[in-house]
């Protein structure tokens, strides 16, 4: 038995040490907001925060998450920045199929926590590990800026 702190709650979990956190979250804890996209840290769909740092949970042995604060998409709205990012995502209408967006939001939130006013280069650095097959990148960039500045940067068609 190990104890994980997920979104502020302690949970007892029976899982082998090397089991990736992603599957502990999805298949044991039942938090399915964190997605599986590649399993080899290439797509970012499984991004969660470990003590505020964005990590790829698909390759993170659960043992290394013990004693750290795990935040998932289900819990990110409880933080100030997370809430702002979600609002911006809705405001800019970023999502399409939505499958990658949990990971995108987790990465964006971590970026803004570290750099409240990110430059384009900062956004590239923080976000290019998150693939979006629907191609929502233009709006992701805009939404991050909106979350950072608080100024609405609507898609050009939403006047």
């Amino acid at each position: 038995m190990i104890v994980l702190t997920i979104n502020g709650q302690d949970r007892q979990i029976d899982a082998p040490d090397e089991m990736p956190l992603l599957w502990v979250l999805r298949d044991i804890v039942g938090l399915t907001g964190t997605k599986f996209g590649c399993g080899i840290a290439q797509c970012g769909a499984c991004t969660v925060h470990l003590d505020g740092q964005p990590v790829r949970s698909c390759v993170l042995p659960v043992a290394s998450a013990v004693g750290k604060k795990i935040t998932t998409i289900e819990g990110i709205g409880a933080t100030d920045i997370g809430k702002r990012v979600q609002q911006a995502w809705l405001g800019i209408e970023v999502v399409q199929c939505g499958y990658c967006q949990s990971g995108q939001i987790m990465s964006a939130t971590a970026l803004l926590a570290e750099k409240p006013s990110p430059t384009d280069a900062d956004i590239d650095t923080a976000m290019s590990g998150n693939l979006c097959r629907c191609g929502t990148y233009v709006r992701i960039r805009a939404a991050i800026k909106q979350a950072a500045t608080g100024q609405a940067t609507l898609p050009q068609t939403i006047a």
């Binding site: 938090l31 399915t32 907001g33 964190t34 998932t72 998409i73 289900e74 990110i76 709205g77 979600q86 995502w89 809705l90 209408e93 970023v94 999502v95 939505g98 967006q101 949990s102 939001i105």
Partner: peptide, 10 residues
């Protein structure tokens, strides 16, 4: 369908 896609509930 956006709101459930930004909080992981969908």
């Amino acid at each position: 369908d956006s709101s459930g896609k930004v909080d992981g509930s969908l």
